[in-house]
């Protein structure tokens, strides 16, 4: 009796696991193993011996500055996107605006958050490039030469402004439902207890929104950090950011050491991974009061 029931359980367990076997195999083959392969490759030299040399070689001025610009652009565009996105979401949820503005902005955000890559670069070249609409209009109308101020679309600032085009809408899309979740009674309760508008946001509104704000900001950061198409189409290979460097390395071994490329990739995974760990840790702290 007991053997019969245990073999029955075993068979059922096997069937259960077989059900997600295709998914597990897919994830292993096309996500996990390729990533681990790179990670482990970063610790071996061309002769197959274990070494930290590749990691140490990352600390050269070119590679370090590439990481630094990448981090700066990702941080600036994610923080800028988070801030502006928050205000836009706040405006449509709590600003008392007509409802068509809300639905219009949400629809547009759905489109704009997916409008990235090469075409986005084209759009900004046509707008803020040397012969772009805004550049030309500023020159013709106000006699103001944007490029004489040192502005360059192919720079940190230019890239940040361009990336925000898909960062802001992403923030709006994720934060709108979170703002909808703020109950009217919380605000009224704080008001009748004597709190000002600012006190409400500082002590109740923002702490409650904090996890979603944080999570989205991390997503925006990783989003910008790994993006290559827009930057590549904007600048060709001229801008020294990590994804472009890695791209060039894959295409032609510009680093003259294939295993250094692994280390470069490992660096990217470590940075996005670390931001993720940071996010999880902060979120756990912020969510002590949730189920």
């Amino acid at each position: 009796m007991s053997t019969a029931s245990s073999s029955f359980i075993d068979r059922r367990t096997i069937i259960d696991w077989l059900g997600i076997a295709p998914f597990l195999i897919f994830a292993l083959m096309f996500l996990i193993v390729p990533t681990l392969y790179l990670v482990s490759g970063a610790f071996f030299n061309a002769q197959g011996q274990f070494t930290f040399q590749n990691i140490a070689d990352l600390f050269t001025p070119t590679i370090m500055s590439a990481y630094w610009i990448s981090i700066k652009v990702s941080l600036a565009s994610s923080l800028g996107g988070a801030l502006i996105g928050f205000f836009l979401a706040w405006a449509i949820v709590l600003g008392g605006l007509p409802s068509w503005i809300r639905s219009g902005l949400l629809t547009f955000s759905g489109v704009a958050s997916n409008f990235a890559g090469v075409p986005l670069a084209f759009a900004f070249i046509a707008t803020l490039g040397r012969t772009g609409l805004v550049t030309v209009l500023m020159r013709d109308w106000f006699g103001f030469n944007l490029y004489s101020t040192g502005f360059n679309l192919l720079s940190f600032l230019g890239l940040t402004i361009t990336y925000m085009f898909f960062q802001i809408p992403l923030m709006v899309l994720i934060l709108t439902p979170a703002l909808d979740g703020l109950k009217k009674e919380w605000r009224e309760a704080s008001e009748i207890l004597g709190a000002s508008n600012w006190q409400y946001w500082r002590m109740i509104g923002l702490p409650i929104l904090w996890p979603s704000l944080l999570g989205t900001s991390l997503l925006l950061f990783a989003n910008a950090f790994g993006a290559i198409a827009t930057a590549y189409a904007l600048t060709g290979a001229s801008l020294n950011i990590v994804p472009i460097l890695l791209y060039a390395q894959i295409r032609g071994d510009v680093l003259h050491n294939p295993n250094l490329g692994y280390a470069l990739a490992l660096g990217m995974i470590v940075i996005t991974g670390l931001s993720n760990v940071l996010y999880i840790w902060l979120r756990m702290r912020a969510e002590r009061w949730q189920k």
């Binding site: 790994g226 994804p243 996005t272 991974g273």
Partner: peptide, 10 residues
Amino acid sequence: VIPAIVIVFG
């Protein structure tokens, strides 16, 4: 979280 370029490199 893992950039596309890293995945394809793998």
